[in-house]
């Protein structure tokens, strides 16, 4: 299938891109790696009037050390992110999760920021960003602003980005020593989206869990934290994980669709939470 017609510009700078997007109006869209957008264009589920191609903006690309955090350029392809030394050292969960995104060819084109901005409820990276307390740097006609991950994902396929704003980079705090991670992605075939995914970040201290963060993929309109489980895990030993995980689906309202009914998703969230936390805790 062939996309409906649209205009195309390839600005030379982020500022130009913002301007083009702003002038393009509501039907202008950012084109980054295009790996989510292109199928939608081909199926004519998306019919933008203008695509602003940001895929070559050097300003959006790369990973840098920013003291107590690393900053990942929104336009950095998945393949670069998952192999980046800074990411592997300071945000290994990002590398682990990115390796589960789509397939190698798509990871060559698809970008870190593109996946986050697309905000598919079944996408894996939003959950990792939420768990790690990422901060999203957004550029628009009015300048820059920063939005926390918890506020960035607002609904199904919807984010805090205005139509004329571009995600510039994502700041991911270094969690420091003592943290370990796991991501449990549950899907039916290697290509399929996650029915449910669970990201766990665990800090151990003196033989028990000092602090845990648990993020859920596809358990609602966007990524969620399993707060009750997190609270129950604080101070828990190996034998406390199962009971804590039983609370993982609290306050979730996952969809029922072709791939799973809501109650099965909730069941999976509990099982996968136990597994992810157990793996991350490494008792």
């Amino acid at each position: 299938m062939i996309p409906a017609a649209f205009d195309y510009v390839r600005p030379g700078s982020l500022d130009e891109a913002v301007r083009a997007l702003h002038e393009g109006g509501e039907d202008a869209k950012v084109l980054a790696g295009g790996q989510s957008l292109m199928p939608m264009l081909r199926m004519r589920l998306a019919t933008p009037s203008l695509l602003v191609d940001c895929s070559r903006l050097g300003e959006l690309r790369g990973v840098r050390d920013d003291g107590d955090a690393i900053v990942i350029g929104a336009g950095t392809p998945h393949h670069e992110v998952m192999h980046d030394a800074l990411v592997r050292a300071h945000a290994p969960l990002i590398a682990t999760v990115t390796a589960t995104v789509a397939d190698p060819a798509i990871r060559h084109r698809g970008t870190f920021g593109g996946s986050l901005a697309h905000a598919d409820p079944a996408a894996d990276l939003p959950t990792a960003a939420l768990v790690l307390g990422a901060q999203f740097s957004i550029v628009g006609p009015g300048g820059r602003r920063t939005v926390a991950a918890a506020d960035f994902f607002t609904d199904f396929f919807t984010t805090a980005l205005a139509a004329d704003e571009i995600l510039e980079s994502v700041r991911i705090p270094k969690l420091g020593d003592g943290w370990s991670f796991d991501y449990q992605k549950f899907n039916r075939t290697a290509q399929a989206w996650a029915i449910v995914g669970v990201a766990a970040a665990v800090r151990r201290s003196n033989g028990s869990i000092a602090e845990a963060r648990v993020g859920l993929t596809n358990m609602g309109a966007g990524p969620l934290r399993a707060s009750a489980t997190e609270a129950a895990l604080a101070g828990a030993g190996a034998d406390g994980i199962a009971a804590a995980a039983e609370q993982a689906a609290q306050n979730t309202s996952p969809t029922s669709d072709l791939h799973a009914q809501a109650d099965f998703r909730q069941h999976l969230a509990r099982v996968l939470t136990r597994r992810a936390v157990t793996n991350a805790a490494r008792f």
Binding site: Y8, R10, G34, M38, R42, D53, P104, A105, I106, R109
Partner: peptide
């Protein structure tokens, strides 16, 4: 490797 159905020629 890229999927050439998911890249615009202009890109």
């Amino acid at each position: 490797s890229v999927k050439s159905c998911s890249v615009l020629a202009v890109q």
